[in-house]
Amino acid sequence: MFDTLLPYLLAGIPVGGQYALIAVGYTMVYGILRLINFAHGDIFTAAGFFMVYLSAALPPLLSIPLTILLTVALGFVVERVAYKPLRSAPRMSIMISAIGVSYLLQNLMWYLTGGLARQYPVLAGLSDTIRIGSATTKVVTIVTPVLTLGLVIALVMLIKKTKIGMAMRAVSVDFETSQLMGIKINNVISFTFIIGSAMAAIGSTLYFTNYTAVTPTVGAMPGLKAFVAAVFGGIGSIPGAMIGALIIGISENLIKAAGLTAFSDAFTFALLIVVLLVRPTGLFGEKTTEKV
């Protein structure tokens, strides 16, 4: 029994880790702006395309950092152009803007790539296979959880211990008061998008090692699932997002093991609805009361 399930468990952990890296971007942005950044999944896809084109000319040691840099720049520009002008607008307007950006990025990527699926480069080291017990797997299976855990710990430290982290916490508690206290909220928000995009870029490097083909809409599904993970873990909580993502990644693969592949996506959304109804604050979220 365990031997038959082990490969699926092993497959679930890295998937969960990759969702976790995307979910960090959602949870941080939502924590500060109360915005579901619908464009985040497309930024993740864009990172995939950056890698495809950069690795054609450069060795991985250069192309990976450059990919992260370009993705960060994209996330920064999106925030400045599409979200910043709407700072004082109703929340729904920013969400519509996010949907518009998602639509724009997908169409732009379609145009630039000619709508064809692009082959993701094989990264030596990550794609090699190793054996664990009776199961064979890729190195990325081991690298992902370790890397994810490391990054999550680093982020938690950043938020708990540094000055910019303190500013981020302040902005997420009270937007206006923190401005009065001398915090430059635009810088803090930009910084949040930069971190989120960098995590998405790292996540995409790991994700596409298993999926190989990049298409303009490939990021939509993982993006939505990562958002569910962020809600599940408690929006605003980074460790929560990681645990939520791991649970989703593993359950998804166990459902596939049970032969119900058609329902593996459905499960994620069913989970979202159950969580929102039973425990809207998620596993680690803080309780907020609604003001009249």
């Binding site: 109360r34 915005l35 579901i36 929340r91 729904m92 969400m95 939505l224 958002f227 569910v228 809600v231 996506d265 459905a266 994620t268 959304f269 069913a270 979202l272 609805i273 929102l276 809207p280």
Partner: peptide
């Protein structure tokens, strides 16, 4: 409410 409703309905459409 609000954006949670949006994401839940989106989820149901995908289901």
């Amino acid at each position: 409410k609000g954006d949670y409703l949006a994401i839940a309905t989106l989820g149901f459409a995908e289901i």
